[in-house]
Design a protein around this nucleic acid. Structure first.
Lengths: 194, 194
DNA sequence: AGTGGATGTCAATGACTGTTGACTTATGAA
DNA sequence: TTCATAAGTCAACAGTCATTGACATCCACT
């Protein structure tokens, strides 16, 4: 109920279909990310968005439609070309070490992870990841067996992400340092050609 | 229904509480692993085991009881001490490359992965993994910051597992070779001291 | 000011969930 | 063979779920 209060204003709101659509989508990402596809209910999502359940079916065609829409909105191709080869490994490592700091990034990854490991939604995610994530990384890596290396890179990335998301606590002090150092080393080992 | 037929023999069976308990447990691991905690229903599990739904509540006390029982049975501490330092990285890498070959191992890992990423069950798994998995690996690794290094090792391990389980297809030919080589390199980078 | 279409509300539906208690049947010891 | 009891069956329960169609309300346009 306090969750709902954050997004749902009890005061009568100005009617705006696009705005409510947006609120529903935001609530969906949050709820799906936190509870998974089966665990999240449309009623909760609607409540958190301060909207009526019926609107979800109306706007998104149903639960699955809402999910795929949220998924599409969550997978925006990053500007891979801009990454710096020299600092990439360490940058990513330290970003992941502090996932919990940035609330929206945390939620974002959590949503994607749940989507990846839910059997109903995994196929949907796979093609998207392949096209908008793996392919750019492959090109960015270049060299021999770029495809396979990109895959391994993604695997390591996912691994650290899972580790971070499952343990709720953020990393601190020496443990954080070791984590970053080792994660960077792992990335480097995977990236390097030959 | 064809799933049920594999385990459930339509012929009248000899009454044996322990045997049906076992069949239910096996079906639970399969179903929970495939569909997650929320996605799997007790009726499906019972059908696959060729038993009645009511027996689950009777024998395991309910859905959560069944799950934790299946979890306990799935996390048996491996004989970590016996691992060979020299070949460890490569052994694990090639084992994971061929996860799909061994059906029961595949199912086993899938179950654990779903348990890890389902919000209702993650806490249950975390303590078990910490005690029976991370602690032994920490001792096996030894040296400075063994705890943190063990954690990173586990993270990489999970990453490859997720990658393998999400993409259904087994690895073949050159792609498999590259995968093993890079995975081994990643493990090595994480394990090595200093 | 009035009106038509967009926007939001409400209640009901049928399907499925986990759990419970009373019931029947098989089994192994007397 | 008898019979107590373990093992398995069945039906019903109270809830929750997603989805739908009819209804009320608002708002921008004429």
């Amino acid at each position: 109920m306090s969750d709902a209060a954050t997004l749902a204003d009890e005061r009568p709101r100005r009617r705006d279909a696009q705005a409510t659509r947006g609120r529903i989508l935001a609530a969906a990402k949050d709820r799906f990310g936190r509870l998974g596809y089966e665990g999240a209910s449309l009623r909760e999502i609607a409540a958190e968005a301060g909207a009526d359940v019926a609107l979800i079916s109306r706007y998104f065609g149903g639960k699955e439609g809402l999910f795929t829409e949220a998924l599409k909105a969550s997978i925006q191709p990053d500007r891979v070309q801009a990454w710096d080869r020299a600092t990439f490994a360490r940058d990513v490592a330290s970003m992941m070490a502090d996932v919990h700091r940035e609330e929206d990034r945390h939620q974002h990854f959590q949503f994607l992870l749940r989507a990846a490991t839910s059997p109903t939604t995994a196929p949907l995610l796979n093609v998207a990841v392949q096209e908008r994530f793996l392919a750019p990384i492959r090109d960015w890596l270049g060299g021999e067996d770029a495809q396979a290396r990109a895959r391994v890179l993604a695997a390591v990335f996912i691994g650290f992400l899972v580790e971070r998301l499952i343990r709720g606590e953020p990393l601190r002090g020496r443990e954080r340092d070791v984590f970053i150092e080792r994660a960077a080393a792992a990335f480097q080992a995977v990236m390097s050609e030959g």
